[in-house]
């Protein structure tokens, strides 16, 4: 018999997540190369982030910011338990993952904004804007690597495939000690 599962990630979250992945990958590949595509996926990414902010207030249970965004003390104590190897399993985003979600959303907004800025008359060809755009993009790639590392670690610790969960939407039901 298969284990009982629960729906955690609603369709919106999954479509948002993988669309943003495609936009970021495409923007990275086309940077300095295929300007029209680069701008299109950049603007698409900013629309995706805006929609995620709206859904953070109006979406389903596990989509809402108040379900998963935690204060610094919770994030730090969770990080300490990860280091000790005894962190609780969260059905939604864990506190560190949640901090990463917010950081990634902010980074993508900053990158989209500085990208758009370079198309305006006032900031056309202004080097510091371009440099900031690139520095933020490099930071984003580093953060994505960290994000994927966190996903792999949490998947191993709790014996579940979190990538599959982000595709299918369902996760193993909460067991004693888990945080639903």
């Amino acid at each position: 018999m298969s284990e009982p599962t629960v729906k955690v990630w609603e369709p919106y979250v999954r479509v948002f997540h993988w669309s943003l992945v495609i936009c970021i990958a495409t923007a990275w590949i086309t940077a300095d190369e295929v300007q029209r595509v680069h701008e299109f996926v950049g603007y698409t990414a900013s629309v995706l982030v805006a929609s995620r902010v709206v859904m953070g207030f109006m979406g389903g249970h596990y989509t809402r910011f108040r379900q998963f965004v935690k204060g610094p003390s919770t994030v730090l104590s969770y990080a300490a338990s990860v280091a000790k190897g005894n962190e609780a399993r969260y059905l939604g985003h864990n506190p560190l993952g949640a901090a990463m979600v917010i950081f990634l959303l902010a980074l993508v907004s900053g990158i989209a904004f500085t990208g758009w800025l370079q198309t305006t008359d006032a900031y056309w060809g202004i080097e510091w804007v371009e440099e900031l755009h690139e520095a933020l993009a490099n930071l984003l790639i580093a953060s994505v690597v960290l994000h994927v590392g966190g996903v792999v670690l949490a998947s191993r610790r709790h014996k579940e495939n979190l990538v599959a969960a982000m595709l299918r939407g369902s996760k193993r039901a909460a067991e004693p000690g888990d945080i639903a």
Binding site: I22, A25, T26, I29, T30, E33, V34, V37
Partner: peptide
């Protein structure tokens, strides 16, 4: 997917 996109981007860029 990534490969296709890279190939597409590179051919345009080249």
């Amino acid at each position: 997917m990534k490969l296709i996109m890279s190939a597409f981007a590179l051919s345009l860029a080249a």
